[in-house]
């Protein structure tokens, strides 16, 4: 069984894994990282989105062996020093979650979206989040939250 080394939320793990093991199952069932949920089996819903070396990836579509030597950040590792990440805070302020099942993936995808466009329009946000499905909110407040998160993150960058 292949041995991999993977850093998840700042902690280094060494694991023996079956080649077919999905990254999301490694996270959830081996490492106890259940903050990342599974919503589908065809990589359509995006609930399982994590950061893989700083870019968003659907962890149901990555084999654990492919994460060997790489850095994974999940929703559980997002905030610093116990504070919420500005995007998490924006989701709270704008009531951008109801059942919350899509939220971890949605927040990750939203942060990734801002790497390409730190000040996205409503249309850019809507298209940028196309790979993440939500059944509760109708996306209205998610779009508002991403704009708010972008503004706050922009200010954080601009503040010395």
């Amino acid at each position: 069984m292949p041995r991999i080394t993977v850093t998840v939320d700042g902690i280094k793990y060494e694991e023996d894994v079956e080649p077919r093991l999905l990254l999301v199952h490694l996270l959830r069932e081996r490492l106890g990282k259940t903050g990342t949920p599974i919503g589908c089996d065809t990589s359509n819903c995006g609930a399982c989105t994590v950061m893989l070396d700083g870019k968003s990836a659907k962890s149901c579509s990555v084999l654990a062996v492919q994460a060997d030597g790489r850095d994974v950040v999940t929703i559980e590792g997002l905030g610093a020093n116990g504070d919420l990440h500005p995007m998490q805070r924006a989701f709270h302020e704008e009531h951008a979650l109801q059942c919350g099942y899509c939220t971890p993936g949605m927040v990750m995808a939203a942060i990734d979206l801002l790497r390409d466009d730190p000040d996205p329009s409503e249309e850019t946000i809507r298209h940028g989040l196309e790979g993440n499905l939500c059944r509760c909110t109708g996306y209205c407040n998610i779009v508002r939250a991403v704009r708010r998160g972008a503004q706050e993150m922009g200010q954080a960058v601009n503040t010395p």
Binding site: T34, H95, G100
Partner: peptide
């Protein structure tokens, strides 16, 4: 009122049955 439910849902401290 902003929701009390949000904090754990936003940080992955969830208790979905499959967790």
């Amino acid at each position: 009122r902003r929701r009390k439910e949000d904090a754990r849902l936003l940080t992955g401290r969830t208790r979905w049955t499959d967790n």
